[in-house]
Amino acid sequence: MTEARAAVAMAKGEPVEVTTIHVPDPGPGEAVVRVQACGVCHTDLHYREGGINDEFPFLLGHEAAGVVESVGAGVEDVAEGDFVVLNWRAVCGVCRACKRGEPWYCFDTHNAAQPMTLQDGTPLSPALGIGAFAERTLVHSGQCTRVDPTARPAVAGLLGCGVMAGIGSTINTGQITRGDSVAVIGCGGVGTGAIAGAHLAGAAKTIAVDTDPKKLDWAVELGATHTINATETDTVEAVRELTGGNGADVVIEAVGRPETYKQAFYARDLAGTVVLVGVPTPEMQLELPLLDVFARGGALKSSWYGDCLPSRDFPMLVDLYQQGRLPLEKFVSEEIALDEVEQAFTKMEHGEVLRSVVML
């Protein structure tokens, strides 16, 4: 067992506390990773606010990159010294989704079996099964994906959640191809990831929609060809006007609200695709005329983690970044210390940053 400094949410709504935790030695199928960088994601704030569940205390942080320090018995996919990006969907390989060749839908993903604890022995609930606002973390070895070790940890780690969800929503779920028109509603971390993904896929027209001018500026930096400020104009009409009156081939909804989902539904072309990657809250309800669902055709999809397969997608995207073809560095607004997580939450809520990254 080793000790590590970590940022922990002790109780609902209370500020994050930096404290010392105990990290067990890795058991069978597990790995201990020395965390080098971890992005501050809105999901971490949801945990702190009790919006995920009430299994406090939470060890926050999940968008991380680092170096494997030790592995347990039976681990063959990674080894001590490997530079890895952590993921929260370690596929099982044997469930019905995996067996039919769709492991990105795995229905039985793995996390570490042993708990990390506070010094008094209280078990910690790691955010998304990772818990990486810590100098070290214990994960299932399948949550570690080896990537180019020369990549900047602050950049590579962002693929662990929001950026991957956005890029994957366009490339994997939306299956955007060269020449397509794409609209992205909501340009936070996930939405700007979708903008970058659409640009990477060769979309002819990428339309960013948001209510915050700063976020629209970020979208342009990451490949948006047009912007729509939803406070100034009707989103559906504006998207149609930019697409010859037809609507976009693919619309990515990165907000997760019924109002914006309806906009996405009506802003797509006939037989077009809507991809929901924004995460709704449990009480939200959607009401659409069933005749419109039938008559407009096309596809209504949800994107889980960008339908990514970490072993396939993380190395590829890091390589594209290293080649200068995917500007992941533009997602990093600031690099901060572990004891600045609480201030990063405030900046995130106020829309001041795209991603704060904790450096360890």
Rank of each mutant, 00 (worst) to 15 (best):
F331V: 08
I185C: 12
W104V: 01
A7P: 01
S169P: 03
A254M: 09
G13C: 09
D108T: 14
K205G: 03
D77W: 05
P282L: 14
C187T: 10
D108L: 15
V275C: 12
G188S: 10
A196S: 08
Q322P: 02
D307P: 07
A344T: 01
N87M: 10
A198I: 10
E102I: 07
I130C: 09
V236I: 15
G174W: 12
M348W: 03
A183H: 05
G74C: 13
T225A: 12
T192Y: 02
V236L: 08
T260P: 01
F133N: 06
G166L: 14
I207L: 10
C41F: 08
P280D: 07
A248C: 11
D210K: 10
Q114S: 13
V155F: 11
H140V: 07
L326M: 10
G121V: 08
P57E: 11
V255E: 04
V67I: 15
C308G: 14
G278A: 11
A7S: 09
L290Q: 08
T43P: 03
E334N: 09
E63R: 07
F345Y: 15
A64R: 02
G202P: 06
T43L: 13
G74H: 06
F331Y: 05
F314A: 09
V18W: 06
E342T: 02
L159Q: 01
T109Q: 11
G202C: 08
L128I: 04
S302T: 13
P115K: 15
Q263L: 10
T177N: 09
A204R: 07
Q36K: 14
F345G: 00
D77C: 14
L360G: 00
H226V: 00
V8S: 02
V78H: 02
T346R: 12
G129Q: 07
E329D: 15
V358I: 14
E287L: 12
L45G: 02
V35R: 10
A295G: 05
G72M: 07
M10N: 04
N172I: 04
L360I: 06
E49Y: 03
P149T: 00
A201S: 09
Y261M: 15
G186H: 04
L222P: 00
A65V: 14
L60K: 09
V353A: 04
V8Q: 03
G162V: 12
L138D: 02
F314R: 08
A154K: 04
L338E: 00
A151V: 15
E283F: 08
E349G: 01
S356W: 04
G245Q: 09
Q343P: 00
R48D: 13
T150M: 07
G297A: 13
A295T: 03
A344L: 05
T109L: 06
P115Q: 14
L128D: 00
G247Y: 06
G278P: 03
G193N: 08
I336R: 01
R96W: 12
H22K: 14
F56N: 02
L222W: 05
H110G: 00
V184F: 04
I207R: 10
H62V: 06
R146S: 12
Q36I: 04
V251R: 03
G27N: 05
S302F: 05
M284S: 08
G93D: 06
L309F: 11
F56L: 09
E17V: 15
N246C: 09
Y261D: 01
V139L: 11
M164K: 02
A31Y: 03
Q114L: 14
M348R: 01
A344Q: 06
